[in-house]
Amino acid sequence: MTDPEMMSIGVFAELVGLTASALRFYDDAGLLRPAQVDPSTGYRFYSRSQVSRACRLRQLREIGMPLPTIGEFFAADADEAARLLDEHVAGMTTEAERLRRAAETLGASLRAESRRAVCTVPGPVLAGAVDQVSASTGHDPDIPVLNGVHMETESGCVRLTATDRYRLATRTLVPTDPTCPSWAGTLSGDDLRVATSRLRRSPSVTVEADERAVTFRTSSGDVLHCRLFPEPFPDHHLLLKSLPR
């Protein structure tokens, strides 16, 4: 006969936040034996005094502590248990940093695969054009794209445009390669201004783009990144077409 104060595995599982299958697994692993097992049915029964250990076991598994280390944890005194916990957290932190670096490397390689060459232009000419048009950018928090510089490329032409809806500035550059493909995007004005001094020092700058950013590759091998605004740039073509030639 089992003690009537004992809890069935289902009741105990609900109380401690574990599943019945997990309790069976921890029994087999020797980490949490049931207080009683019915010899005729094999049913497992647990006592209220086991709640604390079961909850601690759940917490340790939630932070990813391996089963052998959990066994050591339960067999250790308080100081040793705290040391085991600290070592586990330190190991997890190191592993998380390794995974972060690996993910960054993988992400960079994926973006590189999707990146395409847009144009190549003289660095000083590009920097000068950025200086001229960026004075017409705006800083409206409701329309962040006005802080950007719109770049458009087509065969034999690279155009930079900026507007705050009251002023409009545009510069047209001649790329080194006159067969550059058609492309358009709005570059972060803040990122461009940071990159300008380094672009100015490079005789040649190759512009590459993916969905999220533009990359500038200088003659010296520097790689500078500039975010792209996802919002559409104001339609300035109509205004440009209406200007006297």
Results as ranks from 00 to 15, higher is better:
40 S>D: 15
40 S>L: 15
45 F>T: 04
47 S>T: 08
49 S>E: 13
49 S>N: 15
50 Q>G: 00
51 V>C: 06
51 V>F: 02
52 S>P: 04
53 R>E: 07
53 R>D: 05
53 R>S: 04
54 A>H: 00
55 C>L: 15
55 C>K: 15
55 C>T: 15
56 R>P: 03
60 L>G: 03
63 I>W: 02
64 G>C: 01
66 P>R: 00
67 L>P: 13
67 L>N: 12
69 T>A: 15
69 T>H: 10
69 T>F: 12
70 I>T: 09
70 I>L: 00
71 G>Q: 05
72 E>P: 05
73 F>S: 00
75 A>F: 05
75 A>I: 00
76 A>S: 12
76 A>Y: 05
77 D>K: 00
80 E>G: 05
81 A>N: 07
81 A>W: 07
82 A>I: 09
82 A>H: 06
86 D>S: 13
88 H>Q: 12
89 V>A: 10
89 V>G: 07
90 A>Y: 11
90 A>L: 15
93 T>I: 13
93 T>Q: 12
94 T>E: 15
94 T>Y: 08
95 E>G: 06
95 E>D: 14
95 E>T: 14
97 E>K: 13
97 E>L: 15
97 E>N: 11
98 R>L: 08
98 R>S: 11
101 R>N: 12
102 A>D: 11
103 A>H: 07
104 E>Y: 10
104 E>A: 14
106 L>A: 03
107 G>M: 02
107 G>W: 02
109 S>H: 13
109 S>R: 15
110 L>P: 02
